[in-house]
Amino acid sequence: MNYRFEGKKWSRLWISISVLIILLVISYVVNMPYFTFSLIFALILVILALSWDFSSGVTGYVNFGLPFFVGVGAFSSGYLYYTYKLPVPFLLFISFLLGITSGFLFSIPTLRVRGPFFTLLSLLLPLLGTDFILAFWTVLGLPTIGYYNLPTLSGSLDYVLLIVTAITAVISFVLYWITQTHFGLVLRGIGDDEDAIISNGLNTFPYKLVTFSLAMGIVSLGGAIYALFTSYAGVDTFGFTFLMYPMLIAILGGRGSIAGSLPAGIIIVLLSQYLSLYIGSLTLIIFSILAILLLLFFPKGLMRSIQ
């Protein structure tokens, strides 16, 4: 197994990170706030897509619960800022830890079932969790509508882009590295035939538990970044957008490939923002249909199917 950061396997990741750097340079050169804004939004969705691809794409456990963990990250940063006035790095770190914890609690019951049952539970439990959080917030007299005027990652949009790019690159690198280790090999094996792994002596549950907990931690980090980018953490952060786009990006980039999410995310977000200028909210419907078609006809991802 290639543990070094070179060779054919690693070249995919280096290409993706190079694309990221080129876009960063272009953004600084053209100096258009709208382009920079779109790029930041794309990278936030890429972070979510990377997590989804690392957990669901590699193992085949299709998780529809992503928006809940985005909400956990966004809401917790809002709450922690308003209550304790914590600085931004702490907000990001604590959101990440809360995401891991809630991902762990979510995974214990859901990962005991497979296939459509897992997918159904992954949808139901977060819905329950969202309602619980909102009810809990109401009881405590906290603002359920959301938190406004949160601190931003930086006063300058260019710096925000730099920070989000760096975080995206680190996450891509770490997740990709994990997939190249023995741990990643087991995850890929689970994606192929989990029963065959178990019958040859590997208990897959701890592997899945660690994977989904880490992935949901990253999703919550993405949610916190989104909240601190828009200065707002509302109920809509628990919404459908944060499921459909990451899934679409991961599938288009090649399910389980990790590296493909970077270019795919940028293409999809820039395309969707361009389309929304002409067809408005119909864009979401079109992309949803595209996601369903891709799942139906290219379940292993568009890039892999083309290869």
Partner: peptide
């Protein structure tokens, strides 16, 4: 029941710690 997306060596490496 091979792990079709893995190489033969990787198929074996999976169980190298069992």
């Amino acid at each position: 029941r091979p792990f079709v997306s893995l190489t033969v060596r990787e198929n074996l490496e999976l169980f190298s710690r069992v």
